[in-house]
Write a protein that binds this DNA or RNA. Structure first.
Lengths: 182, 182
DNA sequence: ATACGCCTTGGACGGTCGTCCAAGGCGAGT
DNA sequence: ACTCGCCTTGGACGACCGTCCAAGGCGTAT
């Protein structure tokens, strides 16, 4: 059996990653400390630097993993706008994933490794979206995709700031797609 | 003469505010410390808490002041989209004002006083923009304004993250205005 | 010349931080 | 039964943090 010990180790490691994503959302990227993480994961403080090279490495791995999962889960169906906006509406104001995105974007501003990882993620998603738009005969699909993704991220930002006053913006956003059909 | 002393005091206070805006941009909101501020302003560390009730108060005053100045300076002319995008293009990647906006937005997520101040600022600008759109017979001017401002903020975010790959997004953004004329 | 008030200095205080490490626990292989 | 290796513990270390304050500097008014 290799389970008992090694499996327990992997479990602790995973608990730390989960704790990291939660704490980034609740406290903010730069307010997450090793001791907070250890406490939430139910382990001793030293365990963080056993499983991860540094606090920064843990935060990076946690954030990138969660973001990648969230993005690859998005599939532009018949209605792109609805497909992108619905996940935002699911949560009632303190949408954890949105805040994680914003926090990580901003942290990436001062962390080259993080920045390149996120740039790749965003570029990949924009590319997928652009292809979908091109199939729908939307002119300037790349630029349209860039604007749509930017608008979504901007809405995340505003919604994190002011959870109230949520009106239906789908009709306006749809102009981006329908207004540019070839 | 009331100048020498009082004027010098006001000058130091202003230097601290300037240092605060610069440091928020360069180091990030939560990485700004009293000692860093004092050093950049060329004063002793204790001076921060003489002129301001707390570090948080200084950062708040500095950020809100700069943001208010930036927003009130914007006047939607004939071409709203150009009026909003041109300031973004002026800076070559490390646009200080954009980063300040993002940093402050995010800090406001965990600071109620800051949040209400910014919400007022954003709401005020959205209202101005909505009126302009209404005059241009754009349908759903409020929602359109919300989407435009969100898109601008999202572009700020993406551009702070990836200063390269700046293509002209004006034509796409203009669909938001022209695609919805009554 | 003396007293007053604003501004400044530089350090003390208690706390938290990231990182590291000696010591111990414990299942697995011999 | 014993060793080995992975995992865990809890605290030490030095650095930096926000805040506060006694002491001093220096124009200004009397």
């Amino acid at each position: 059996m290799e389970s008992s010990m090694a499996a327990r180790g992997r479990d602790v490691r995973q608990r730390l990653i989960t704790a990291a994503t939660e704490l980034i959302v609740h406290k903010g990227w730069s307010a997450v400390s090793t001791r907070m993480l250890a406490e939430r994961a139910g382990v001793a403080p030293g365990v963080v630097h056993y499983h991860f090279a540094s606090l920064r490495a843990l935060l990076t791995e946690a954030a990138i993993g969660t973001m990648r999962a969230a993005v690859t889960g998005l599939e532009p169906g018949q209605d792109v706008i609805a497909a992108l906006l619905d996940p935002l509406d699911e949560y009632s104001g303190d949408d954890p994933t949105s805040l994680l995105f914003i926090e990580t974007y901003l942290a990436a501003t001062r962390d080259d490794e993080l920045r390149s990882a996120i740039s790749a993620l965003v570029a990949e998603f924009q590319h997928r979206l652009a292809e979908w738009l091109a199939d729908r005969a939307v002119v300037a699909p790349q630029e349209t995709a860039a604007v749509i993704v930017a608008a979504i991220d901007g809405l995340m930002l505003h919604r994190a700031l002011n959870p109230a006053a949520r009106t239906d913006l789908r009709p306006v956003l749809r102009r981006l797609v329908e207004g540019g059909t070839r």
